[in-house]
């Protein structure tokens, strides 16, 4: 059963995840038809509260909400009262007073979504759209959806599937959410990165760690490339971009080494030429664009499950 908020993959058990993926799949079949718009969330207000730059996540949530007929308010920190020094609390209370039913929050501080959900400032459902280097649960869900779409044998679990997550694991909330979700679904996960970009706690994650991309590649059904997050790097984590690219970048040579039938994923935005070469990004193995369209369906499923039913208080009485 779905909770009030979606803050972390840990909020979901395996059955919740499968149910979200199934719902997204049905929504996909419906929007393949003539109509892309469903009346389900008519009259509900969803706020995109983005304190950090984002294009695809915000647009993806916005189009998911609009396809379910919800009203969408976009609120970005730039050009708002936040730049005048308004606190998260005041912003939240303002949104509450405006009657927001759900708040989708992205923030550069880890734990911001949790803070908003626990504070009592707001009664809306809170969806974490990326908080610092902590989590980005809807990205992990859409990645799982994309994997399932490409490996139809693994509909009800990823036992026997091997996923490599490559690159800047240290700064990546996408990697964190994906590790949690992939383990929940039973996949084997290998982190591949220079030692400086593997977080200290990774040894407790029940994953394998490799410092050699070439050795790991022939085993991988799924190669998940991560963006090098220069904006979060205050120190140098590798000697030069060129050296990083040579050791951990996905180029045409490495693409041929991957297990046959495998796929290449990237959460975007891609640094072409750094972690992924242009020909790998545009190759047949690449499912980057599928990830984008699946993002809308998965987020529709999450919004439907959080907002589609009665408010929790009402359910208790019913």
């Amino acid at each position: 059963m779905m909770k009030t908020h979606l803050l972390s993959i840990n909020d979901l058990d395996r059955a919740d995840v499968i149910s979200i993926l199934d719902t997204a799949e049905e929504l996909g079949k419906i929007s393949d038809g003539a109509s892309k718009k469903l009346p389900t969330l008519r009259g509900r207000t969803i706020v995109n509260l983005f304190f950090e730059d984002s294009t695809r996540t915000r647009i993806s949530f916005e189009s998911a909400a609009k396809r379910l007929s919800a009203d969408v308010i976009n609120f970005s920190a730039k050009g708002s009262s936040v730049s005048k020094g308004e606190s998260l609390k005041d912003t939240a209370q303002t949104l509450q007073a405006m009657g927001a039913d759900a708040v989708i929050i992205r923030h550069s501080a880890s734990g911001a979504a949790q803070r908003l959900a626990d504070s009592g400032w707001i009664s809306a459902a809170v969806i974490n759209a990326g908080d610092g280097t902590h989590e980005h649960p809807t990205q992990a869900l859409l990645d799982a959806y994309t994997i399932r779409q490409n490996f139809p044998h693994f509909r009800n679990g990823f036992e026997g599937l091997h996923v490599g997550i490559v690159g800047d694991i240290l700064h990546s909330r996408v990697a964190r959410s994906n590790v949690l979700l992939l383990k929940k679904l039973g996949a084997k996960v290998t982190l591949i990165a220079p030692p400086t970009l593997i977080p200290v706690g990774a040894s407790t994650w029940d994953v394998e760690v490799s410092y050699n991309f070439d050795d790991a590649l022939p085993e991988l059904d799924v190669v998940m490339m991560l963006r090098i997050q220069s904006e979060r790097m205050q120190n140098s984590f590798f000697p030069s971009e060129r050296e990083y690219s040579r050791q951990f970048g996905l180029d045409a040579r490495r693409l041929k080494m991957q297990k046959s039938g495998g796929i290449v994923m990237h959460p975007g935005p891609m640094n072409r030429g750094l972690e992924i070469s242009a020909d790998s990004a545009d190759s047949l193995q690449s499912v980057v664009l599928q990830q984008v369209s699946n993002g809308v369906l998965t987020r529709m499923a999450v919004l439907y499950q959080l907002l589609g039913g009665a408010p929790l208080t009402q359910q208790a009485g019913a």
């Binding site: 199934d22 719902t23 389900t40 379910l68 589609g308 009665a310 019913a318």
Partner: peptide
Amino acid sequence: LHRDDLRLRPPRPLL
């Protein structure tokens, strides 16, 4: 997704 009683009950799985 077209029901008029969605808000009266917990969310239902899609068929």
